[in-house]
C-alpha cells in the first residue's frame, strides 16, 4: 500500500470510524450515493407497524368496485370460488384436517395485504393500481372477512392498527424479538 493509499484508508477510518463496527479493509467502493428521491421511488415495502405506508385512503365500498374489475376473475365473487387463491373465510379451520388458509383465517398482518397487492397485483397488471385503490381493495378484503366494518376507512393510520385474528398463532423459530427502543 502506498503512503497515499494508507492515508486514505486512515482518513476513512477516522471519518467513518466504527460505522460498521468492522476492521478497515480495502474494498472497491463502486456504489454511488442514492438520493432520497431515488430511494422513495424504489422503496415499496411496508413494515408490519405501518412504516412505509403511503398517503391515500379507501373504503370497502370503493374496494368492491376495484375488486369486481381487477380481482374477481381470478379470486371469485367475494373472494371465494375463483380459480386462484381463496381470500375470504376459513376461520376456525386451521386445526382441522382440511385447513382453509385465507387472509381472514391465516394472514398475521393487515399491512401485508397492502404490501402484496401493491407490489404484485393484479397479476397481469402489477403496479397499475393507485395507492388509494390498494387501500380500498385491502379494506374490502378485510371487511369481507369480518375483520373491519363496512364503513371503516383504511389509510396509513388505521391499517396498522387492524389486529388480524390469527396474529398470535405464529411461533417464530428464528431467534428474534423486537428491540426495546
Amino acid at each position: 500500500m502506498s503512503t497515499r493509499e494508507a492515508l486514505a484508508v486512515a482518513t476513512c477510518v477516522i471519518v467513518f470510524g466504527g460505522c460498521a463496527g468492522t476492521a478497515p479493509r480495502e474494498t472497491p467502493n463502486l456504489g454511488r450515493a442514492a438520493t432520497q428521491a431515488e430511494i422513495a421511488g424504489w422503496d415499496i415495502s411496508i413494515a408490519p407497524d405501518g412504516r412505509g405506508l403511503p398517503r391515500g385512503a379507501g373504503t370497502p365500498a370503493d374496494g368492491a368496485l376495484v375488486y369486481a374489475q381487477k380481482c374477481q376473475v381470478c379470486h371469485g365473487d367475494k373472494g371465494v370460488g375463483g380459480p386462484n387463491d381463496r381470500l375470504v373465510g376459513g376461520q376456525g379451520t386451521l386445526a382441522s384436517k382440511t385447513p382453509v388458509r385465507t387472509i381472514g383465517s391465516y394472514w398475521p398482518y393487515a399491512t401485508t395485504v397492502f404490501d402484496y397487492v401493491r407490489r404484485s397485483m393484479p397479476f397481469f397488471q402489477p403496479h397499475s393500481l393507485t395507492d388509494s385503490e390498494v387501500y380500498a381493495v385491502t379494506a374490502y378484503l378485510l371487511s369481507l372477512n369480518g375483520i373491519i366494518g363496512e364503513q371503516d376507512v383504511m389509510n396509513a393510520e388505521t391499517l396498522p392498527k387492524v389486529k388480524m385474528p390469527n396474529r398470535d398463532n405464529f411461533i417464530l423459530v428464528q431467534p428474534w424479538k423486537p428491540r426495546v427502543q
Partner: peptide
C-alpha cells in the same frame, strides 16, 4: 433492492 431494517418486513411469502 436490499433494505436494512430493524424488524422482519412480514411479506406475503414469509407469513401467508
Amino acid at each position: 433492492r436490499i433494505k436494512v431494517t430493524d424488524t422482519p418486513t412480514m411479506t406475503k411469502d414469509e407469513t401467508s
